[in-house]
């Protein structure tokens, strides 16, 4: 029964992974007429000496965990706030809160890119009108601000996912548990932290694992907004791999980066799955 599925997986997953592993130990440039040459671990040695790789790794961690962390908190807060909203008002509020999830990520990226513009951007116009700033800020072109600005965009796009999942998980908490907590006069905070959050643990773990993987691989938003700049301040691993593979055409080196990236994600997924089993 499982043989056909394994066959398909071997082709669509196994072949690219194995081919990437093979390329990662070769000197292979797409523009070169010379055939690929075996160079052992030279690409890996180069990678560990490459400061841009380390910066990309730090940026990836900041982007991924920062975005997921804030989105989880916001999604959870919104789910708790709207939990008891019923009728037409509840449906309308939930529909509005889910809207960003329905917007394609590239569209979100371009929308925010234009809103962040120093000249003519809506965000600067608002902040200037409100008197919070005295001169327009070039949000995406200041090294220190670019990453937080991209993360805000990402959080806006991702929060509805957590809101949706956690709202469903909240609705699944048995009424008896809530009722008995009320009988015991549990106040709001202890109801959230002692009753609801333990019930949401699995939903939180699974949803954040999914989003960590998705954000680790997020290319479209960052590329559309900053292309990894200014400098390397928003260059994540996926952007760096793209530049190596499709701008420098250094497929060997890009594959070595890809292998490290894969191993990191695998290690993270295993740790997460273990945490789930410990429940």
């Amino acid at each position: 029964m499982v043989t056909p599925s394994l066959g398909v997986l071997a082709i669509v997953v196994g072949y690219p992974v194995i081919y990437t592993l093979i390329l990662s130990v070769q000197d292979y440039n797409l523009l070169s007429a010379a055939p690929a040459r075996f160079i052992g671990a030279a690409n890996y040695a180069k990678l560990f000496r490459d400061p841009t790789f380390w910066q990309a790794l730090v940026n990836t961690a900041a982007y991924t965990f920062g975005s997921v962390g804030v989105s989880v908190l916001l999604g959870l807060t919104l789910a708790l706030l709207t939990e008891n909203l019923g009728g037409c008002r509840g449906r309308l509020t939930r529909a509005l809160l889910l809207t960003p999830w329905a917007v394609p990520f590239v569209v979100v990226a371009f929308l925010f890119r234009y809103m962040y513009l120093q000249n003519g951007g809506a965000i600067n116009a608002l902040l200037l009108a409100a008197g919070f700033i005295s001169a327009p800020i070039s949000w995406l072109n200041v090294s220190l601000l670019a990453m937080p600005a991209v993360m805000v965009t990402n959080v806006w796009a991702m929060t509805p996912f957590f809101f949706l999942l956690l709202s469903a998980a909240l609705a699944g908490i048995p009424n008896e548990v809530i009722e008995s907590a009320r009988v015991d006069r549990a106040h709001t905070l202890s109801m959230i932290f002692r009753i609801k959050l333990p019930f949401l643990r699995n939903a939180l773990l699974v949803s954040s694992l999914l989003m960590v993987i998705a954000n680790f691989n997020d290319f479209a938003k960052i590329w559309a907004m900053t292309q990894g700049g200014p400098g390397y301040s928003t260059t994540t691993l996926v952007i760096y791999v793209y530049r190596q593979a499709f701008e420098n055409f250094a497929f060997g080196y890009a594959s070595a980066l890809g292998v490290v990236w894969l191993l990191l994600l695998l290690a993270f997924a295993v740790a997460y799955l273990r945490a789930l089993r410990m429940d």
Binding site: L31, N141, S143, L144, P230, G231, N248, F249
Partner: peptide
């Protein structure tokens, strides 16, 4: 040439750092 394309990434990243950083 291909070397110009590769170098452009490093040089323009530096230009961006000069323009936007401290």
């Amino acid at each position: 040439g291909p070397a110009f394309a590769t170098a452009s990434s490093a040089i323009m990243a530096g230009v961006q750092q000069a323009v936007t950083g401290s």
